[in-house]
Design a protein around this nucleic acid. Structure first.
Lengths: 345, 345
DNA sequence: CTGAAAGCGCTAACAG
DNA sequence: CTGTTAGCGCTTTCAG
């Protein structure tokens, strides 16, 4: 019973093998394996037994080609080490639960060229939906998304026009709201810590909204410091120190995210800078991972999980042109002074 | 020139459309689009122009079926919010660079049932390689991996026998080395903070190695505290407090990872506990994101990036049965006393 | 360098 | 409830 031609390339197992092993036609085997109800219990058992015995795994490539259907949803995000995108993905998984759809992640590294390549690649697998972070894309990318036959949901950002559907928050307004809160609390000499990432449009919009919010009160940023690469506590600490050295009379620093903001908070604690009296601080994202710090950093929830979930729901419903704008909530934490004349509810 | 039957389902664009638009046979169009060199420059230009004009995106489902080749590498990890797996993935991407292979990530949530389902799903796409975290799998999973026709690399852990190839570190020895260092530094009353995650086999092996290392010196853990769910500074802080309350004479706490370890460090700082004199601390992973803390936590590098890179190289080389064991280095940081009789270099 | 023919493994659409 | 017949869109192979 040994293989008569051991060197011949072993043919990959097919439906036909299961069909022969079970004595049931290929078509019926296919029905059983796809879980269709219109097969007798006895036949089903025979087929399932044979498939299991053989260790058969269906070939979805062939299945997808024949049925013109693919159970994949392309999810395109800048990075996975950012701590925010894993949470978006968790929301997407939750929203896709029970639909049979599987998310497949592609990374752009905040680079439009990569984004284009990744989308081309994803589209070549003919996914059932596309969820992509941001509204800013190259012309070619926008053209591909527009030509895709599946629903497309652009997420995270609502400041702009989507190709199809959109689920996000207004970073512009988020920045503005933070500026408003800071000014109301009496801070006047305000600095900013951000990244040099040119293609992080959401961060740029947040800052633009923030500056507009300051300008509404006749204020402007005193100074800013920027870092390259990924965020960390160390970068927040170092840039805070640099900013304060350069501009000793700052009374507030707005950070592009909580990770660097937390670094700033640790620096202030180490230096004995009184927070929030002498210096106020705020970040963005409401990262729960940082909840154990001695003081809670003022921040704003970026609704990552819900954005993912809502986007997934649009895909599974096959909706087109849906617009969902979420509203982030300000969490003042311990690093913004209470406004002098605010009433206690 | 408008569509004569607007309601008819628009047929998906095929090679034939590009062929007709360019006046070149389908076969030659296919050659051009796959970047083969045996096509005249003029023909190539005509085809590329037509393809771009039409916005044609090749159908890889059909291509993969016909060529029996798929440029996908399945990467199966427990989670993506762990901060360690994104770095493994970065290593994999780096190792795959230029090979034309694309990683596709599947998540198991530390659950063998999910793992099985994810692998079945991945295999149904006939990937060119499988990279999977850990050596502990259900029988069905092991059977599927064994039957897969592509290279399989089990990563992260080297304490056990792989199905095919392996790239990892010995967590057992890592735990043992840490115990050795702690005892050498003079600590004697040692506690542990870990997770309740039953299926985190690497954490379990680290602890087993740690306890064995203590036992070699006639010591045992005084006490332990465990948390559920994902790691955070807050959990590290709270469990440290609980442990110290329960066992006030502890002089060292070993943490299952740096995130909770850092939480413990912050708690000690807030309480004025002298580190490393009164209390020593150590974690695991060497997370660089935490580098900005006031003091550097003692830890051990888990070689995440290199593990990913080496695994990718095995896949792209199509190697079988390769075993690669990496050696993590101890980083004493500021939270372990210098051993009394150690010489300064 | 280019083209024609024959599938890849599965499923839609019918027939029984 | 089960089987038969055509493809799905591309690539392999073999001729020109």
């Amino acid at each position: 019973m040994t293989d008569p031609a051991p060197n011949r390339r072993r043919r990959t197992m097919t439906l036909r093998d299961v069909s022969e092993a079970s004595g049931v036609s290929e078509m019926t085997v296919s029905r059983v394996l796809r879980g269709r109800a219109d097969v007798s219990a006895e036949t089903r058992a025979r087929v399932l037994g044979a498939a299991r015995r053989l260790g058969y795994v269906p070939n979805r490539i062939a299945g997808a080609l024949a049925s013109q259907r693919v159970n994949l949803v392309a999810v395109i995000v800048p990075s996975m080490s950012n701590m925010v995108f894993p949470e978006v993905l968790a929301g997407i998984s939750e929203g896709l639960e029970g639909s049979g759809l599987q998310p497949v992640v592609g990374l752009t590294r905040y680079d439009p060229g990569h984004e284009e390549a990744v989308i081309y690649d994803m589209l070549s697998w003919r996914p059932s939906g596309i969820i992509i972070a941001g509204l800013e894309h190259s012309d070619a990318t926008r053209a591909m998304l527009g030509a895709a036959e599946c629903p497309v949901v652009e997420i995270m950002d609502s400041d702009g026009a989507p190709v199809d559907s959109l689920v996000g928050i207004s970073h512009r307004r988020a920045g503005g709201a933070m500026a408003q809160a800071i000014v109301a609390a009496g801070y006047r000499r305000i600095g900013f810590v951000g990244t040099r990432m040119v293609h992080d449009h959401r961060a740029a919009k947040r800052l633009a909204g923030f500056e507009a919010g300051l300008a509404a009160h006749g204020l402007a940023l005193e100074d800013r410091a920027d870092y390259a690469g990924s965020s960390s506590l160390a970068k927040g600490r170092d840039l805070t120190e640099a900013l304060v050295r350069r501009c000793p009379d700052l009374d507030f620093i707005y950070y592009t995210n909580d990770m660097v903001g937390a670094g700033g908070l640790l620096w202030c604690a180490a230096q004995g800078v009184a927070v929030p009296e002498r210096m106020g601080l705020a970040g963005f994202n409401a990262l729960e991972i940082l909840g154990g710090l001695p003081r809670r950093l003022a921040t704003m929830d970026s609704c990552r999980h819900e954005i993912g979930r809502r986007a997934a729901e649009i895909i599974r419903a096959g909706e087109r042109g849906r617009l969902v704008e979420l509203t982030p909530t300000l969490q003042p934490g311990d690093t913004i002074r209470r406004p002098a004349r605010e009433e206690t509810p």
